[in-house]
Design a protein around this nucleic acid. Structure first.
Lengths: 110, 110
DNA sequence: CTGTATCCTGATAGATACTG
DNA sequence: CAGTATCTATCAGGATACAG
């Protein structure tokens, strides 16, 4: 149960690494766990799994297990997850327009 | 120093009551402290002051002290604060379109 | 009426170790 | 390669009291 529609959306994107995760998954489909962990350095193994599970629970990401040895699992955005990207873009655009770049460690949207 | 432009924007709107505050201030200019506290029931006195100060520090809200007795202070959105409203609307719209209404205690946008 | 200070609690994230 | 479990650190939110 969420307080309202804004809160519901915020819950899904709030995590410290979730937006970078969503952008990575949007840019590269069929992403794998280890690849993502290296790309999102210095994210912790446990935190990546945790935030990924939340994205899956929220229906933004789907997990595909190939049942191979060695283990092979891929992650992709769902339609719902894809529909969230433009929303995130709007937030980023406002940030770029209203925050001093020197206050940012890095930029997400180029 | 923010991690990136998304994080910078999120920091400004993340607070539990900030969006309701922004919407109230957008709907009613010249809002006063006690009025807002009653409208945002059951927000705590301290929390309202805290979140309001953050909005002021971030340049989204301006404080106008009339230097009267009894005390008279009014709050308004700045231009920057007004420019954030459409961004918040986008987030709410996505929420309304993608979250089951029965999962929401209330809706912000009617 | 409009604030600030203290103390407490729950959620989030990180370090680290363990599992199939 | 892809996870889970435990423990700890930090911080946002809230209850309450005090102040100009």
């Amino acid at each position: 149960m969420y307080a309202n529609e804004f809160d519901a959306t915020m819950q899904m994107i709030r995590g410290k690494w979730k937006i970078r995760l969503l952008y990575k998954l949007n840019a590269n489909s069929h992403s794998r766990f280890n690849t993502l962990q290296h790309e999102l350095n210095p994210i912790t193994h446990k935190i990546l799994a945790e935030q990924m599970n939340q994205l899956i629970d929220d229906g933004l990401v789907e997990r595909h297990d190939f049942h191979e040895q060695p283990l092979h699992v891929e992650y992709n955005l769902t339609k719902k997850g894809q529909s969230l990207i433009p929303v995130v873009d709007v937030i980023c655009d406002w940030g770029l327009a209203n925050v001093d770049i020197s206050e940012l460690k890095e930029t997400l949207c180029d």
